[in-house]
Design a protein around this nucleic acid. Structure first.
Length: 138
DNA sequence: ATTCTGACTTGCT
DNA sequence: AAGCAAGCCAGAA
């Protein structure tokens, strides 16, 4: 995992406002590089410093192993939820999910600008690196 | 080079 | 709703 890629992912995550969320696949798409699993890998290893709970599975399920903490954030931020989350808060039992159809982040014009800047910079770095690789193999 | 693994997704049961 | 298989992208062994 290139450090440039990690930084790009984290930059996108920081743009997601409280109360909303996007899927790993969404981030990958915005980035234009890699896939959902790459984004997941970045969050797994480097996500502790950003609002990681705003990035989740396309199904709306919180990241494995962090459901309880994520739910606290959702409730505090007023993120749209569906299912028996209240019961989960009390007993730790029951299934619930983020209602992505309602909470999914809709980037504004300024957001697009920043994302484009991030994606562009990443693309530039990766292009440079691939050129270097070609040089090595030749 | 090959195989395994994973904070993923989608489609099918 | 829940489980499963396949597809997917990359890093690690």
């Amino acid at each position: 995992m290139r450090i440039e890629y990690v930084e790009a992912v984290l930059a996108i995550v920081r743009l997601v406002p409280a109360g909303s969320a996007v899927s790993y696949g969404d981030v990958a798409e915005l980035l234009g590089t890699g896939g959902p699993r790459q984004v997941g890998a970045v969050m797994s290893h480097y996500g502790s410093g950003v609002p990681w709970w705003r990035i989740l599975k396309a199904s709306g399920q919180a990241p494995e192993g962090h459901e309880a903490e994520a739910l606290r954030h959702y409730v505090r931020e007023g993120t749209a939820l569906k299912g028996a989350y209240e019961a989960y808060l009390r007993t730790g039992e029951g299934s619930w999910r983020v209602d992505l159809s309602a909470a999914r982040w809709a980037p504004g014009d300024e957001d697009f600008e920043q994302m484009e800047a991030v994606a562009g910079e990443l693309a530039r770095c990766l292009r440079k690196l691939s050129v270097a690789d070609d040089g090595m193999s030749a």
